[in-house]
């Protein structure tokens, strides 16, 4: 990967974090931890990997994103706003009455959101249907499916993964956000799921495990999914819940947090400095 592209994606990830925090702070609280853990992934996807056109959000042959961990909506909205799907200032309407930006993703409200999610597990099957639909229509398009590690407690996920392998959906890319925490604490304490990569391999997936905070590693793993060979892909993203904002990452219970004015200012100043270093 070229250094300029890498720095561009790293900067985009920082901007997505700032945008997500902007939205959540405007509302006063929200799902901070799990939004921050997928910022680098979203930067790679919306920073060049996905075939999309913000001026034509519904073009049929676009690559699609299903953020099945729908509570990470603010991070997705950040990426979409930065790509020009809607005005950046609209981020501050998160969860306000009548908003187009509800806490959980809604395909009927937000330009650029491809699927409604929020009830954990359901996005997995929806993504399978979308990928199958593209295949049946002969479209060269991928469906990217972001699943939380806590979310994978839901049995529906594994029904869907079995389906993806059985139907040879090699245009489906599962992106497992292995941030190791869920609402009640560490996943290994709450509900240990074991080795995700081994599980996906056993289900018949082509797998990879990468540092989910490293845009270059993510980018390279995603590049491999451009050409399917009969098997769906699963990329295990080794991430940190709250990544990029140390004060958040240090809190074990960081699924949903209030964000005070003081915190928002401190975190933003820090992220701005990071951005300046990348863009300088």
């Amino acid at each position: 990967m070229e250094e300029t592209k890498k720095r561009e994606l790293m900067a985009f990830a920082v901007k997505i974090r700032m945008a997500a925090l902007e939205a959540i702070h405007a509302r006063g609280s929200g799902h901070v931890g799990g939004a921050l853990s997928i910022a680098d992934l979203l930067a790679a996807l919306y920073g060049g990997e996905m075939n999309i056109d913000p001026r034509d959000p519904k073009k049929p042959d676009r690559d699609k994103l299903v953020c099945s961990k729908g509570h990470a909506g603010p991070a997705v909205y950040g990426a979409l706003a930065l790509r020009g799907y809607f005005p950046y200032d609209e981020l501050r309407t998160l969860n306000r009455p009548g908003t187009r930006l509800p806490s959980h993703c809604d395909r009927n409200k937000t330009p650029g959101v491809d699927m409604t999610t929020g009830s954990l597990g359901q996005g997995t099957s929806l993504a399978c249907g979308m990928a199958l639909g593209d295949k049946l229509r002969g479209l060269d398009a991928r469906t990217f499916l972001i699943v939380g590690d806590g979310e994978s407690d839901e049995g529906q996920c594994w029904e869907a993964f079995a389906f993806a392998a059985a139907k040879k959906l090699d245009n489906l890319v599962v992106l497992l956000d292995w941030n190791k925490r869920q609402l009640d604490g560490w996943t290994d304490d709450v509900y240990p799921m074991g080795d995700y990569e081994a599980k996906f391999r056993a289900f018949g997936f082509d797998t990879a495990k990468v540092d989910g905070g490293d845009v270059e590693a993510i980018w390279e793993a995603l590049e491999r999914t451009r050409k399917g060979e009969g098997r769906p892909f699963a990329i295990i993203l080794d991430t940190e819940k709250g990544h990029g904002v140390p004060e958040v990452a240090e809190k074990v219970m960081n699924h949903s947090l209030p964000v005070s004015d003081g915190e928002f200012e401190r975190w933003t100043v820090r992220l701005q400095a990071e951005l300046a270093a990348l863009e300088g």
Partner: peptide, 26 residues
């Protein structure tokens, strides 16, 4: 096979797959 999908004994997933197909215009 391009018009009929046997989803196995997994009804919750079947509904989700159907809904994903509906979003693509099926």
């Amino acid at each position: 096979p391009e018009r009929a999908v046997n989803c196995g004994i997994a009804e919750a997933n079947m509904i989700g797959v159907a809904c994903g197909l509906a979003s693509a215009g099926f």
